[in-house]
Nucleic acid binder design. Structure first.
Lengths: 146, 146
DNA sequence: ATGTCTGCAAAAGCTTTGCAAGTAC
DNA sequence: GTACTTGCAAAGCTTTTGCAGACAT
């Protein structure tokens, strides 16, 4: 993702273009693996040794408010952030603490139709998010990244 | 839930029967609405003004380890606990911060069959948990309980 | 009697906040 | 020039930990 694309994302939301914001956004698109605020800071450290953790939280909050990223909660962990804003599901790897996004329109359709038919009393569904929990069985995903 | 039933749950796991553990367990079955540690402490206050918050965390952890309760994570919130140990899904009310359990065997079957057919490469699924996010449309569920 | 549990308080870890200085527009 | 943003440090909040005394078995 080049500089112009990144700044456009900010400008489109009327956000001021600061080097810190651009750098954080770049890292988010680079990592893509649901980093925590602390992981963002570490990744940024070579480029931006001076950036404050408070500023990173601040920027991530701003991005959330402006629909650039989403928060993702995991079990017994801290907050992680996700640049993927399309509706999607999550695969939780118990053996490597990895969270992967799972896109599947067929599944979305299946769920939508199921609840259109079945319904929940006094409740208007806005969205679904399926958590798929299990074990990775290959080697390339064994990296611990807690 | 009477005293004997509560103590049996503890005894079955080889846990010592202490008044604090029984009281916490009783409250969990009484509330059933995914309380936080702090909410448990408040609910317990009339019966047990002296119980320490550290002890509550301690007890809740022990219960988790022994399969009596589960942790539930919510977006931008603290940990909540759930006595419902059967596989189930969660309904998140955006307008009242309520989390309800949703049991649906038909849905479980649907998901199981879908992924049996479709599969995820290099991944062995252990369980599913669907988050159903939306708004309650009636009045009786409007109580804020954050 | 012994090993476990509780209460208390302090500490830890993630996140938020306040404010002065700096920066984007 | 003005309003917003950053850096820094302190504070806040939930959760964990250490230890002495108490309790269940």
């Amino acid at each position: 993702m080049n500089y112009n694309k990144l700044t456009k994302i900010l400008a489109d939301r009327g956000l001021k273009i600061t080097p810190q914001r651009v750098a954080v956004l770049e890292v988010l698109y680079e990592i893509r693996n649901h980093p925590s605020a602390e992981e963002v800071r570490q990744k940024l450290h070579s480029k931006y040794p001076s950036i404050a953790i408070g500023t990173i939280y601040n920027i991530l909050d701003t991005f959330c408010e402006n629909g650039i990223i989403k928060k993702v909660k995991t079990d017994s962990d801290f907050v992680r952030y996700d640049v993927d804003m399309e509706n999607h599901h999550h695969i939780y790897g118990l053996n490597n603490n990895l969270i992967q996004n799972y896109h599947d329109e067929e599944l979305d359709k299946l769920l939508k139709e199921y609840f259109a038919k079945k319904g929940i009393p006094n409740f208007q569904i806005k969205e679904f998010s399926l958590q798929i929990i299990g074990q990775y069985t290959n080697d390339q995903n064994q990296t611990k990244q807690k």
